[in-house]
Amino acid sequence: MSERPFMQLYVSDYLGDTRHLSCEQHGAYLLLLMTMWNAGGSLPDDDAKLSRCACLSIKKWKAMRADIEPFFTVEGGEWTNDRLTKELQKSTTKSELRSSAGERGGRAKALKTNKAALANATALPKHLPDTRNHIAAAQLSPSAFLYDRLIEAASSRGPCHPNLAMGIGQITDLIAQGYDLDRDILPIVSEKARPDIGSWKFFATVIVQRAAERVAIPAKPEAPQIDWAARLKVFRESGTWGAWGPPPCEPGCLAPPQMQQKIAA
């Protein structure tokens, strides 16, 4: 089996770029992409070999080469495809991170086994705290789907730090608190990931900050203080109340009742 059995195909993008191809040309193009994926990202610029990869006679291949070649970069005697190269890089990064996580998991399991053996040798066997914590962590472990989405986002612009293969509990905590994976989390991971950032805590902090900024409600400005004493003085002296609403002692007047009572007296 190939080391890379799964190749990502963005169907909408593919169909949008290839509507002009015939059925036979579609087949040749896809076969070249698949062979290139298994070959590690490139094929030799050799018509005889390319025709075999496309399952075409050399004559048919040469007749359609001009229609297929624009989808590839031909340089230095090799054919490559930009999109396939990026997907291959992401796949390789993801595989390395999983391998690193597996090695850490194997060491942790061996340590746990040794501790359990030591505990079983005592007169009164009991569950070790480490064992209980390990079981609880296993029950809360996120799905492989979530892990893949996070690593794909972290490596979308290049290799990410290998420590990201470790536990993603801080991200699952955010999801449990109501943060949305596609709206709140993945865009930040994709934007902020760098080869020197190896902690999910960094991303969690930025995710919380951005979400708070998005939903922040501006403080309501305080209502201006009204000098009712000055207004009532003007009313006593001139008998005019202006645009301040109903005058004192009239229904709906906004002046404090105790002040209105002094005028009425």
Rank of each mutant, 00 (worst) to 15 (best):
F72E: 00
D196L: 00
D130K: 05
D17F: 10
R83N: 04
A136K: 08
A54H: 01
A123L: 15
F202V: 11
I168P: 01
E237P: 07
L118M: 13
V11F: 13
A230G: 01
V74G: 03
C53L: 02
Q25Y: 05
S22N: 09
A212H: 09
K59P: 04
D227N: 15
I58Y: 02
H127K: 08
R236H: 13
N38A: 00
R157E: 14
I175H: 01
N133G: 14
I135R: 11
L181Q: 11
A54L: 02
A176I: 06
T92R: 10
S100Y: 11
I188R: 06
A39L: 04
E103M: 14
Y10C: 04
M7W: 09
W200G: 04
R104D: 15
H26S: 09
L164Q: 00
E87M: 13
R83C: 06
T122L: 13
P5Q: 04
S190Q: 15
H161L: 05
E222P: 14
A123C: 11
Y147D: 04
K262V: 11
V11M: 12
V11L: 14
Q170I: 02
I58G: 11
S2L: 12
P248V: 05
L88R: 10
I171C: 03
I58S: 11
S238I: 09
F202C: 03
T35K: 09
K90P: 00
H127F: 09
A204K: 12
A176Y: 04
R52W: 02
L124R: 14
P162K: 06
C249E: 05
E87T: 04
P224W: 04
A28F: 01
L56S: 01
A66S: 12
H20L: 07
S57P: 01
A108I: 06
V208F: 02
K94C: 05
K220N: 10
L9R: 11
G41C: 02
I197N: 03
Q170C: 09
E222I: 05
E191W: 07
W79N: 03
G106S: 13
N120W: 07
I151T: 03
F145K: 15
I185L: 10
I58K: 09
S2W: 12
I188N: 01
C253G: 10
H20T: 08
A230D: 04
A66T: 08
P251A: 12
R183C: 09
S51P: 00
T73I: 15
P187E: 00
E75R: 13
G167Y: 03
F235D: 05
D67M: 10
L140M: 09
A230Y: 07
L88E: 01
F72L: 11
T85Y: 03
L124P: 00
Y147G: 09
T85D: 02
L84C: 04
I207L: 14
K62Y: 01
R210D: 08
A243S: 14
A137F: 04
S95W: 00
L30Q: 14
T122R: 07
P221H: 02
T35F: 00
I226L: 06
I263Y: 07
A265M: 13
V74P: 03
R65K: 14
S199E: 10
Y14R: 00
G27E: 07
P70N: 06
R194G: 12
P5K: 02
Q177R: 11
S199M: 06
V189L: 14
A137K: 11
R149T: 05
F202K: 03
P257T: 11
E24I: 10
P221E: 08
